[in-house]
C-alpha cells in the first residue's frame, strides 16, 4: 500500500565507525513517521542515506521502486525534499526571493508562476517582509522557515525533516505544526527529532534507533 521508500539490509559507516546496522523499513506516502533516538544513534545518517547525500556500505534503498544507486542526486531531489539539521547548509542564494525562486528559475518556469508561488510561500512562512533581505542576516528561525519553504516549492513527493523545530519559538512551532498537518495527506513525511511532544502530536508511526539499529517500530 503506497510503499514509497523501501530500505533493505542497510549498513553504513562513517570514518570507519559503524553508524547503521541492518536497517529494514518501508515508508508510505500516507504516513507521518518519526525517527527518535539518542545522539549518535544514526537518525541523521539514515535520513542522509535515503536522500542520497551519504553512500551506504551495503544494502539497498528504493524510492518509488527505483534503487537510489541508479539515481542521481537531482533525480532524488525531485522526489524527496530533505531539510538539513542546520539550515545554513542548504541556503545558498544571497536574498530570500532568490533562494525561493532558484529551482524554478533553472527549471524554466514562467516568471508569473514563479512570482505567484514565491509569494504564497512568503505568506505561509511569514517571510513577506524579508523578501529582498540578505539570507545571511536572517535569524535561525527565519532560516529554518526559508529552507523549508524553498524545499516545498520543489513539489517533493516525500519530505525528510531533520530536527525542524530547532530554533523555533512556540508560536513558530505551532505554525510549523499546522503546516505539517495540512500536508499529511498530500506528501509522506519522515521526521527526525528529539522533540518528544512534537513527535507524539504528529506521528502515525514512531521508529526508535539505538546504536544504529531499530529497537522499536510502533504505531502511535
Amino acid at each position: 500500500m503506497n510503499e514509497f521508500i523501501r530500505i533493505e539490509k542497510l549498513f553504513c559507516s562513517l570514518n570507519k565507525v559503524q553508524v547503521l546496522r541492518n536497517i529494514n523499513i518501508s515508508l508510505n506516502k500516507s504516513e507521518f513517521v518519526s525517527i527518535i533516538g539518542p545522539n549518535g544513534s544514526g537518525k541523521t545518517t539514515l535520513g542522509k542515506v535515503v536522500s542520497g547525500i551519504i553512500k551506504q556500505d551495503s544494502g539497498d534503498v528504493f524510492i518509488d521502486d527505483k534503487n537510489i544507486k541508479d539515481m542521481s542526486l537531482p533525480e532524488i531531489g525531485r522526489k524527496i525534499g530533505y531539510l538539513f539539521q542546520n539550515p545554513d547548509r542548504q541556503i545558498f542564494a544571497p536574498t530570500v526571493y532568490e533562494e525561493l525562486s532558484f529551482a524554478m528559475k533553472y527549471k524554466k518556469t514562467a516568471t508569473d508562476i514563479i512570482e505567484k508561488r514565491v509569494n504564497e510561500i512568503l505568506n505561509i512562512f511569514e517571510l513577506s517582509h524579508l523578501r529582498d533581505a540578505s539570507t545571511y542576516s536572517l535569524s535561525q528561525g527565519e532560516k529554518q522557515r526559508l529552507a523549508l519553504g524553498a524545499m516545498l516549492l520543489n513539489d517533493p513527493e516525500y519530505l525528510i525533516l531533520d530536527e525542524p523545530t530547532t530554533g523555533l519559538d512556540p508560536k513558530r512551532k505551532y505554525e510549523l505544526s499546522k503546516l505539517l498537518d495540512s500536508m499529511v495527506n498530500r506528501v509522506g513525511i519522515l521526521l527526525i527529532s528529539h522533540d518528544k511532544a512534537f513527535v507524539l502530536k504528529h506521528s502515525h508511526r514512531i521508529i526508535e534507533l539505538y546504536d544504529g539499529s531499530i529497537i522499536n517500530d510502533k504505531k502511535n
Partner: peptide, 23 residues
Amino acid sequence: ELKDTLTAIQLRGIDIKSLPLKE
C-alpha cells in the same frame, strides 16, 4: 561547505551537468 552547497543545489532537482555553460 562547498560540497554541501553543491549537494543542496542538486537536491533542488538541478542537474548542473545538463545546464548550458552560461547557467
